[in-house]
Amino acid sequence: MNGTLTRPLFAVFLALLVLTLSITTYTYIGSRSHRARVRPAPTTTEVQRPLPDRPISHLPGTLYLTNERGSLFKLKQGVFNLLQSEGGWTQPSPSSDGKRLVIVRRSGFHSDLYLLDQDGQEVAQMLGNAGRYIDQNHWAFYPRLTGDGQKIFFSYDSPKGGYEVDLSIWALPVGGSISQARRWTDGTSYTGGDVEPIPLGSGGMIYTSFDFAPDGTVHPQIWVMPRPFTQGTALTSMDDACSQPALSPDGTRLAMICTGGKQTSRLVVAQFTGSSLTGVQVLLDGQLVARPTWAPDGSGLAFLAPELPEGLFQLWWLSTAAAQTPPAPVQLTIGYDFDATSTIAWIG
């Protein structure tokens, strides 16, 4: 036996080796493909746990977020709960007492406004925009309740005609019909129009308007407007291309994102005087930051950004307490597919 093997035994061994190595090689190459490494988005009913070593459970209050398939989630004390499943839900916004959410429900060719309670149960449909013919449908986006809960500011694609469809800001009395709504702005033609209104305690509003730069490109700009159809004041320059304004709970700071017309975004915070911005501070740069949202106690910002180095948009947290040193953002979730075009509602 010394120094030799029996041939039949060796033949069997060799056949098994060839089979195993061939399959292993095939599987290994397949595992190296990008497709094999893409993490599938969770099913809507698969409510994932947040990262265990992240301070998500320390976030104060309750957050409402939507994902790319139109599901509504509630995050409280570190636990996500699915409130509405894949129904076109997007852009939740809380009432000042935190007991209601006004939210968009998007269907094929139109979007409606709904009022939900804090558990995501439907209270009322506020606005229905389905039309009999395709061009009789309307879009309603970015709803925001006023502090007294009497009106909803939102973007609405009326008037429109032919190829020209642009959003303007409207204010709708809660419980009223669209005929009782009042138009506040006239979105610039062929730009997509005006979006993201924030009603102010003074009776005015902050909003994002899109307009043409001198070179013909379209840029967003944040404005403050005291009354309907008044001139208003630009809070940011057209070159900075800022949008997605978020006012701090005490109304003194404005967070926003600015792209400068590029394919990355900066997270910027500034003092808001009521008619201008001062002390502009860039908190993050060179990323795809979206939807900054103030914590109810003003201690920091939640926002959405892709999972690094690539991936779907996740929830992040950035403390603004240590204002002198650039704070480090913390990724709070993995595996979700949050809708970065949707606002985050955060109540205390």
Partner: peptide, 15 residues
């Protein structure tokens, strides 16, 4: 490839 990430520069509405 799992979708793409980008900044859409303005609202695109088309009837």
């Amino acid at each position: 490839i799992g979708g793409i990430d980008l900044v859409t520069t303005h609202t695109v509405l088309d009837d």
